[in-house]
């Protein structure tokens, strides 16, 4: 059972790390908009300015 003395603090450390990561992501605005960025990937090609005006 003494392995628990190592594993449990380790799991706590992982939780703290995950929590820190989540806090960082929230503060960096990753969760401010969960919808719009998903649509960027649907675009076929990057926007180009040379595209003819009247299609």
């Amino acid at each position: 059972m003494s392995i628990l003395l190592v594993l449990i603090p380790l799991s706590l450390a992982l939780v703290i790390f995950a929590g820190w990561g989540f806090f960082w992501a929230v503060n960096a605005g990753q969760f401010d908009d969960l919808e719009s960025p998903g649509w960027d990937a649907l675009r076929d090609e990057p926007p180009t300015d040379e595209r003819p005006g009247d299609g």
Partner: peptide, 12 residues
């Protein structure tokens, strides 16, 4: 943002 963080802490 604040309530998201609280939710995460409570969940973890």
């Amino acid at each position: 943002r604040d309530s998201l963080k609280r939710l995460a802490v409570a969940g973890f």
